[in-house]
Nucleic acid binder design. Structure first.
Length: 262
DNA sequence: ATGGTCGCATCGCGA
């Protein structure tokens, strides 16, 4: 079988119900992973999504902040939802398809403004969250698994508009990139997006604060799709739907896609 | 060097 998966930080699923539906109608991924739903699970507007064929959902939510959901046209069962770093935040949910593939959906903490855990508690929480992820995947090696989400780190020089200017900016600092690499190594994860698109600038997020995000193009690749070695070769057709950043009342993130033939 | 824009638990905070 073949299925297409997308990951999208939606920045309020209730406010953006209509562009989620637009994505479902126009792109029709089989599995859609959302982050920053900013909604309790029982207030996610499921009916419209179900009417479009997304009859399965696994999710964790809280009022106002965070929140992750996997909407699926394919039958899916919840397998876990961990509170890494014990923050009490809804930042992870995992579901399993009938073909045995597990999908982990993450919203890693953004980490605040100052990249120093001594003066900024949120930066320490981000690093601790990544360390907990690393330890969990090290202790329990994932198999037949896909990991997606807003990981809030752009690891490569060509994942940001200016490597030099962003070296001290949270999301691209060397210590974050090192933690990111340790999470990847712990699960033998490979970067499906970069396997498919190995060269060139690639972004999935553009700040709301830019005067003209499209012309300025000061983006970062914060949203990722990874796979374990047993299925990574099945991944193909990766793309980022940049157009969605220009939709009506957009999220500041664009959806990232990959297809798996399994 | 600064400020810029969003969303919501809305006049403060997180992103």
């Amino acid at each position: 079988m073949s299925f297409t998966l997308a990951t999208w930080n939606i920045n309020s699923v209730r406010l953006r119900e209509n562009i989620v539906a637009k994505l479902m109608q126009e792109e029709a991924p089989d599995v859609l992973c959302l982050q920053e739903c900013k909604s309790p699970v029982d207030k996610i507007p499921l009916e419209q999504f179900q009417a479009l064929g997304y009859t399965h959902m696994v999710a964790r939510g809280q009022k106002g902040y965070n929140g992750v959901a996997i909407l699926s046209k394919l039958p899916m069962q919840e397998v876990s939802a961990y509170d890494y770093a014990s923050l009490g935040h809804a930042r992870h949910i995992a579901g399993q398809l009938e073909n045995g593939v597990t999908i982990h959906n993450f919203y890693v903490p953004a980490g605040g403004d100052v990249p120093d855990r001594e003066v900024n508690e949120k930066f320490g929480q981000k690093l601790d969250y990544l360390t907990d992820m690393r330890d969990a995947f090290h202790a329990d090696k994932p198999q037949k698994s896909i990991l997606v989400g807003d990981l809030n780190i752009a690891p490569r020089e060509d994942d940001v508009w200016s490597h030099k200017k962003l070296l001290k900016v949270v999301s691209h600092t060397p210590i974050e990139v090192e933690h990111f690499g340790q999470v990847m190594d712990s699960g033998d994860w490979s970067d499906v997006t970069r396997n498919d698109i190995p060269e060139g600038q690639l972004y999935s997020w553009w700040s709301y604060r830019a005067r003209d995000w499209d012309a300025a193009d000061k983006g970062r690749r914060l949203d990722h799709i990874w796979a374990t070695p047993d299925i990574t070769n099945a991944g193909h057709s990766s793309r980022i739907l940049r157009d969605a950043r220009g939709w009506e009342k957009p999220s500041d993130h664009a959806p990232v896609f990959a297809t798996f033939d399994l």
